[in-house]
Simulated scan of single mutants.
Amino acid sequence: MKKYIKLFYLSLTFLICISVSAQTGRPQSKIITDSIYSEILDAYRTYNIFLPQSYEMDKDKKYPILYLLHGVMDTNQGWTTRGHLKDVMDQLIASGEADEMIIVTPNAGGNIYAGEWNGYFNMPGWAYEDFFFKEFLVYIEKNYRVKGDKQNRAIAGLSMGGGGSTSYAQKHPDMFCAVYAMSALMNIPNVGGLPPQNPDDKMAILNKSVIENSCIKFIEEASDETKEMLRTVKWFVDCGDDDFLLDRNIEFIQAMHKADIPFQFRVRDGGHTWEYWHSALYISLPFISRTFSK
């Protein structure tokens, strides 16, 4: 009952803020869809970016940034249309549970069975990880008012994007202050997932890249120096009790525990669904907001 009362007051606060903004004519938060041409990928790549209400009001203000990654077969639109990112963020800011931030979702996917590339790692013909760090992140933080340091940069994602965000922070712990991994593809599961149609198709290439970039193996083989750097990142792993990736997430947590790297771990009721990931925003965004330097 308390949960429903809280949601009622969050919704009421959000509606009041919308009404006040409409009456005063003040700018509101917005999500913009744009694109960047990648020399590395030799293609345009779209992205969605959430800009908070004050972005157009205070031209000198800079913001912390969250890179929010989508899952396999999805695109940059998923968190906007199915995760309802703007509505959730507006509610959390209005209630004081999260501070204003910029949130950007790059496009690393599409219909893989129709021949579109998917994945956050470098693969033959798809050097996406190079694109992300050498072109995309640089472009975003140059063209938007981003603070641009470790203590004001976080990364999160669901499924394929949960594994991608975890791996990115493992390889670049000097760049991210926090990671929130939802239903994360830490490695290929024994059962479930999307099987390849033949041994050489793009799904097979994606699966191979996930195995080669196993987040579990990375921790198990990390040097003492690497482990020390990983301890400078705030880690949060969130996976449903009916999720086919739960075992892999537990294996990751076990490796983190053995390596003495602090983390938070939640197993909630749910599966590998948008209902679960939407609800995760109410946990992940306040967590990330608290981690940013004030």
Results as ranks from 00 to 15, higher is better:
233 V>L: 06
75 T>H: 03
215 C>D: 14
245 L>K: 06
287 F>V: 14
26 R>N: 15
144 Y>T: 08
130 D>H: 06
234 K>S: 14
192 G>N: 01
25 G>Q: 00
108 A>W: 01
34 D>G: 03
254 Q>S: 12
192 G>T: 03
283 I>M: 07
108 A>D: 12
199 P>R: 07
44 Y>H: 13
187 N>Q: 10
275 E>D: 15
42 D>V: 04
211 I>R: 13
163 G>D: 04
37 Y>G: 06
116 E>T: 10
36 I>M: 11
113 Y>P: 00
13 T>A: 13
90 D>W: 03
94 A>F: 07
292 F>P: 15
181 A>H: 02
109 G>L: 03
122 N>S: 12
203 M>L: 09
168 Y>H: 11
123 M>N: 08
92 L>K: 14
294 K>S: 15
244 F>R: 01
110 G>M: 08
63 Y>E: 03
100 E>T: 05
289 S>C: 07
18 I>H: 03
200 D>T: 15
207 N>W: 00
83 G>I: 04
88 V>C: 13
285 L>M: 09
187 N>R: 05
119 G>Y: 00
80 T>V: 14
108 A>T: 05
267 V>M: 09
71 G>N: 01
225 E>I: 13
253 I>L: 12
163 G>Y: 02
63 Y>P: 11
74 D>A: 14
18 I>R: 10
85 L>P: 15
106 P>F: 00
235 W>V: 13
287 F>E: 13
229 M>I: 06
211 I>G: 09
149 D>C: 11
232 T>G: 02
293 S>V: 04
149 D>K: 04
275 E>N: 14
5 I>N: 10
261 I>T: 05
213 N>D: 10
120 Y>C: 11
217 K>S: 14
135 E>Q: 08
57 M>R: 03
118 N>Y: 00
205 I>F: 00
212 E>T: 06
280 A>N: 13
60 D>A: 09
122 N>D: 15
244 F>H: 07
239 C>L: 03
226 T>R: 11
158 L>E: 11
2 K>G: 06
200 D>F: 09
260 D>I: 01
196 P>V: 06
93 I>S: 06
158 L>P: 13
135 E>G: 12
199 P>M: 03
34 D>E: 11
282 Y>V: 06
89 M>E: 12
290 R>A: 15
226 T>K: 14
66 L>C: 06
49 I>Y: 07
216 I>G: 07
13 T>N: 13
56 E>Y: 01
222 A>H: 09
16 I>S: 08
96 G>R: 09
267 V>F: 01
258 K>Q: 15
72 V>L: 14
49 I>R: 02
167 S>Y: 14
204 A>I: 05
256 M>S: 03
243 D>N: 04
112 I>T: 10
198 N>Y: 10
24 T>D: 10
179 V>M: 04
105 T>L: 01
230 L>E: 02
52 P>E: 00
270 G>I: 07
68 L>A: 06
231 R>Q: 12
158 L>G: 12
58 D>E: 07
233 V>W: 02
29 S>F: 04
111 N>G: 13
266 R>Y: 02
100 E>A: 06
90 D>K: 06
207 N>T: 02
181 A>Q: 02
288 I>M: 04
15 L>C: 11
129 E>Q: 15
137 L>N: 14
99 D>L: 02
53 Q>S: 13
280 A>V: 05
155 I>N: 11
